[in-house]
Design a protein around this nucleic acid. Structure first.
Length: 318
DNA sequence: ACGCGTCAAGTACTC
DNA sequence: GAGTACTTGACGCGT
C-alpha cells in the first residue's frame, strides 16, 4: 500500500505565511468607503501569494496533498459586499494552478460547517450554493475545477435524520452540476456516521471523505473498519485519484473530539493495519494543530514501522 | 509583548 | 423565543 501525505492550508514553519488573513464585516463597515475594496484586495493578494509560498513548501518537502484555505478572499459571499475577488488576481490564480499541475499536487477545499444542504430554511441552502460557487470560481481561475475536490459535511439532523437526508437530496438539486461533480462528503463526529454518509454518497455518486477521528468519535457497533473501508473505497472507483482519509487524534480523553497538536501513531494503528490488508493506495490529509510539523513527524513515525519504507519526502510504501 | 473579546454565516441544547 | 456552546484562526484593542 502506498500512502501520500499533506496538511491544511498553512505550513507553520514558514514566516508569516497565513493564506487566511481576513476582515470581518464589522471592521469593513468602519472603513472609509473609498478604501474598503482596496483593503479587501490587499488582503486577498497577500493570501494568494502566501498560498503560493505554502505550495512551494509542499514541493520542497515532496508533500503531494494541500488543502487551500477557504478564507482567501474575505467577505466574498457577503450580500452587502459585492466585489470582484477573481479578475484582479487572475495571474496569481493561474500561477497557483500551474504549480499544482507541474508538480502533480492534489489540492482541495473544505468550506466550513455553515455550508450544508439539510436545512429546511431556503436561505441556508441558497447561502450554501453561493459559498460553493465562490470556491468553484477560484478553482476555475486556477483551472483546477475539474480535478480539485470541495469537501463538505451532510449537515444537521433537526431531530429527524431521515427527513433531513431527504431534504439534502432535494436541496442539492439547486447546486449546478459542474460544482456537484467536485463534491466529496465527510462523516462527522456527532451526527452522520460513516454508514449514513456512505448511503448519501452512493445515492448521489459522490466520493466519500473518510475521517478516522470522526469515525472513532461517532460509530455504532455494526460499523467495523473491515466492512466500512471496502464500501468507502468503492465510492472512489473510476476516480483518477486514490481515496482520501482525514487523519487526526484526540486532544485528550475529556476533549475527545478536539484535535491534538500531533497525530498519535497508536491511535491510527488499527486503521493502518486494516488499510494494509486492503492493499490499495490512499492519501492522508493530516488535520493536526501543529500542521506541517505534525505531518513530517507522523511520516517518520509510520516509516519506522516494520515493513514500511519512505519512498519520498511525503510518501510511504507499507 | 501578551491576553482577551469579537467575528457573516448554523445547529443543538437549555430554559 | 432567547441565550449559550460548539469551534477556528485571525484581529483589534487594552494593558
Amino acid at each position: 500500500m502506498r500512502i501520500r501525505f499533506g496538511y491544511v492550508s498553512h505550513a507553520l514553519s514558514l514566516y508569516e505565511a497565513t493564506p487566511a488573513k481576513t476582515m470581518t464585516f464589522a471592521r469593513y463597515q468602519k472603513l472609509d468607503p473609498d478604501t474598503q475594496v482596496q483593503e479587501l484586495e490587499r488582503i486577498t493578494e497577500r493570501n494568494l501569494q502566501n498560498t503560493i509560498r505554502n505550495l512551494h513548501f509542499n514541493v520542497a518537502h515532496e508533500l503531494p496533498l494541500y488543502r487551500f484555505s477557504s478564507s482567501i478572499a474575505p467577505l466574498a459571499t457577503h450580500d452587502e459586499v459585492p466585489w470582484d475577488y477573481i479578475t484582479p488576481f487572475q495571474s496569481l490564480y493561474e500561477e497557483i494552478g500551474s504549480i499544482v499541475r507541474r508538480h502533480r499536487l492534489r489540492t482541495s477545499f473544505h468550506p466550513n460547517q455553515f455550508t450544508l444542504f439539510t436545512s429546511d430554511k431556503p436561505h441556508v441552502t441558497a447561502n450554501a450554493v453561493k459559498d460553493l460557487e465562490y470556491h468553484y470560481a477560484m478553482l476555475q481561475a486556477m483551472d483546477l475545477h475539474e480535478e480539485s475536490h470541495i469537501n463538505i459535511h451532510v449537515g444537521g439532523a433537526y431531530g429527524d435524520k431521515e427527513k433531513a437526508v431527504a431534504r439534502f437530496h432535494e436541496n442539492l438539486k439547486q447546486l449546478p452540476e459542474p460544482i456537484k461533480k467536485q463534491l466529496t462528503l465527510e462523516n462527522d463526529d456527532k451526527t452522520y456516521t460513516t454508514t449514513e454518509t456512505l448511503e448519501v454518497c452512493e445515492k448521489e455518486a459522490i466520493p466519500m471523505m473518510f475521517d478516522y477521528h470522526h469515525y472513532m468519535a461517532n460509530h455504532t457497533e455494526e460499523e467495523s473498519l473491515e466492512t466500512l473501508l471496502p464500501r468507502f473505497f468503492k465510492t472512489w472507483d473510476h476516480m483518477p485519484v486514490p481515496p482520501k482519509i482525514h487523519i487526526s487524534s484526540p486532544k485528550n480523553e475529556k476533549e475527545y473530539r478536539s484535535h491534538a497538536g500531533s497525530v498519535d501513531l497508536d491511535f491510527i494503528r488499527p486503521l493502518l493495519k486494516e488499510l494494509k490488508s486492503q492493499g490499495e493506495p490512499v492519501d492522508f490529509m493530516i488535520e493536526a494543530k501543529d500542521k506541517d510539523h505534525a505531518v513530517l513527524k507522523l511520516i517518520e513515525d509510520i516509516a519506522g514501522i516494520r515493513g514500511a519504507k519512505r519512498v519520498a519526502g511525503g510518501e510511504i510504501e507499507y
